[in-house]
Design a binder for these strands. Sequence first.
DNA 1: TTCTAGTTACGAACGACGTTCGTGTCAAGC
DNA 2: GCTTGACACGAACGTCGTTCGTAACTAGAA
Lengths: 232, 232
Amino acid sequence: MNPRERRAARRNPEAEAAPRRPRKTVFTAAQIVDTALDVIAAEGYEALTMRRVAAALDTGPASLYAHVVNKADLDELLIGRLCADLVLPEPDPTAWRDQIRGVCAQIRDQYLRYPGISRAALAMAPTDLEIVRVSEGMLAILLAGGVAPQAAAWAVDALLLYVAAYCLELSVARSANADAPWVLDPAELRRRFAALPAETFPHTTRHAAELTAGAGHDRFDFTLGLMVNGLG
Amino acid sequence: MNPRERRAARRNPEAEAAPRRPRKTVFTAAQIVDTALDVIAAEGYEALTMRRVAAALDTGPASLYAHVVNKADLDELLIGRLCADLVLPEPDPTAWRDQIRGVCAQIRDQYLRYPGISRAALAMAPTDLEIVRVSEGMLAILLAGGVAPQAAAWAVDALLLYVAAYCLELSVARSANADAPWVLDPAELRRRFAALPAETFPHTTRHAAELTAGAGHDRFDFTLGLMVNGLG
DNA sequence: TTCTAGTTACGAACGACGTTCGTGTCAAGC
DNA sequence: GCTTGACACGAACGTCGTTCGTAACTAGAA
């Protein structure tokens, strides 16, 4: 089957193409996705190139285009694959805040397992069915919790956006930390803030500790709390 | 002066290099930044290449590297330039919510004037002094409003992150709309949501209107309200 | 003025990227 | 057994960011 048809079918399930006879092939689109995820997990999203994936599959880059339209298409398949692994709880009206936080934490951890992949998530129109499944699940939790439909719809969008941006920032900071000399572990960043001229940056220097504080995902939890608590 | 020194000086004002004699040059780093912004405003951030900027300056790409370390450095200069144009109000304890919203709206409009440039803002460590100036200004507003230092510090980060992500999503949707055939003006997107199988996506189909609603920056205002109101 | 030193400008090239073309290969239907 | 269509893939194209080597130029010393 043509990969363009496959993409169209993925986006629009009604137009499901007639199921051709299964043909024995050397490798499949799923193998490409798995290999790509391995590459990202090991070397980061920046290292994800068609050639790199092809090499990991012992072939040339041209072979991939029989199963994948584009690199953008591959990106879409990747985050679709990530979304497929998420478990969406049955909505419980008494625990909707924790449920939403839990789903967001799942997405966060999934993104961070594959550093930099959230860049692909941000640069993509959310048309893939697996993404819609996630947003449907979050919407269900919020509606069950009594959130008004309009607020719930916008909140899902805002939460997904923030989670992706948070993970991207984290991945960028880490990968930069790896090789660049001018970078920022929290302690070094704090030292820099404190060393700024105090007359032009009084609050930044005084509160350098707060600006760089936060073990683990404290910053993440704080922002999610801000958003979720505002929905009550 | 070596561009590496210039970058170092920009990041670390104490280490200000001895002011060399001003040398008459054919073009300066500021001209490169302005030209790059023109390119982005006209053709989007994706079209911003070293060659494109060089061509607009009637020269070859190699010439740029006398003033700019690399493309990442140019990105940094670009958003530094954007931040320099922001006006930060004198903190008013009685109007801090509106002041914060106003600053965020300024950032948003500045990002949207140069479509896709928020990608550069997200992929960057916030070390540039102009960015610190903005975050200092927002911090000042929040602290004047009585927000606790830790909450204020984290809120500044969350707000900047959300604004950048929001603008990136908007830019992506628009640029995709330009050429790709499979895309989403709000009406088309709503039709797609409504056309999904209702048994697996009951809430998405039922609330397709809410999911795609929002003229102007309603979604933006909603999320900012969520965050800002939670800080009281 | 002339010379020298150091900086700037830039054509040409390198390696890597995404993508396409054309050809070879192989399994399934008549 | 032969045809057919999908698949695999080497080779190539055009573009990207970046570097190298060299020519052009300016500022100060002689």
